[in-house]
């Protein structure tokens, strides 16, 4: 989502800004033309070097996740040498840059590239579910107030008091069945609470502003006020905390799958690739767990960089 946003912003603004810069030399008055919120944000985001780096890493990872499995010489479910199992894996070499696993002798690079698909998919789509639920709950609570607000916020209190990781583990074990979509839904359903609190507090302050009052005075319906007038103004903090959810859910999914309660090994994720690796650690097969974990770190780092960049970009107090 973050990426789409940035792409959209990039397409509409870069050309405009360049054109304006050219014209500014010719005609002084063009400088008065105002920039939209997103144009301003993108201008600031571009100066944030780490954020651009993060965006680059993330773009590369997504490309690898989409294209990688297509380029690989064999399918994920194909085991290269099904008749031979070995006691020990083999370390990184030219033909297998990330090494080979013990047992079925699978290429670790192949596993990691395939894992990227599921892991990134789970991270981003569970975030989308969480953000959607959180935004809806938060805007209803913040806009309606009164009894509904109280009820919803008490539910949030209860959910926040739960040891979420325990609950996700239990839910994944009992409902999951190794299915990717179920895991996505479980993570989504348990990651909306923070967002809903945030959105509610934003709504509480924005709904008192003059433009909302004006809209209400003209007789705009509640639904339109919520989605057209208030929500766009609450957009930036939501995006920033959404990036944190992506990072958290990627790590969380990896852990749940690592324990064997998450996605079944037939659809690889970085977590379930790791789960078999533990038994090979005493043999010294470091490359097996190292590379999937490294992929997780790289992804989370990139997402956090982008999140930081977005926060600075959207912050009206920071200068472009």
């Amino acid at each position: 989502m973050v990426q789409e946003l940035n792409r959209a912003v990039a397409e509409t603004t870069v050309a405009d800004i360049d054109r304006r810069a050219d014209e500014a030399g010719a005609d002084y008055e063009v400088g008065l033309e105002s920039l939209s919120q997103f144009q301003l944000a993108w201008r600031k985001f571009r100066r944030h070097r780490l954020a651009l780096l993060g965006l680059g890493i993330l773009g590369t990872l997504v490309t690898v996740a989409i294209v990688g499995p297509l380029l690989a010489p064999f399918e994920f479910n194909t085991i290269p040498r099904p008749d031979v199992t070995v006691y020990e894996g083999r370390g990184p070499s030219l033909t297998h840059p990330f090494g080979e696993t013990g047992g079925l002798q699978r290429d670790v690079l192949h596993l990691v590239v395939n894992g990227a698909r599921t892991s990134l998919f789970i991270g981003f789509s569970s975030m989308l579910i969480g953000v959607t639920i959180g935004t809806l709950v938060g805007s209803v609570a913040g806009y309606a107030g009164g009894f509904l607000d109280n009820l919803l916020m008490r539910i949030v209190d209860v959910m926040l008091s739960l040891p979420i990781l325990f609950v996700i583990l239990v839910a994944a074990r009992f409902f999951g069945g190794g299915n990717v979509m179920t895991i996505v839904i479980i993570f989504g359903v348990f990651s909306w609470m923070g967002i809903s609190r945030l959105v509610r507090s934003l709504f509480l302050s924005i709904r008192e502003r003059e433009f909302v009052e004006a809209a209400r005075a003209v007789g705009v319906r509640d639904r339109r006020i919520i989605f057209r007038h208030i929500l766009p103004n609450a957009f930036s903090p939501i995006v920033v905390s959404a990036s944190l959810i992506v990072a958290g859910n990627i790590i969380g999914e990896a852990f749940v799958s690592f324990l064997g309660f998450g996605v079944s090994p037939t659809s690889p994720t970085w977590g379930n690739i790791l789960s078999n690796a533990l038994t090979f650690i005493p043999l010294g097969n470091w490359w097996w767990p190292f590379f999937p974990g490294f992929a997780i770190i790289l992804t989370v780092l990139a997402v956090n960089f982008v999140g930081d960049g977005l926060r600075d970009a959207f912050d009206p107090r920071s200068r472009a």
Binding site: I251, F255, F258, I281, G284, W286, P289, F290, G293, I296
Partner: peptide, 19 residues
Amino acid sequence: FAMPTFWLGIMLIFIFAGP
């Protein structure tokens, strides 16, 4: 912040308790 706890644990086991 980006490091999964369990991965760090595995790597430490490899370094200090491995062969």
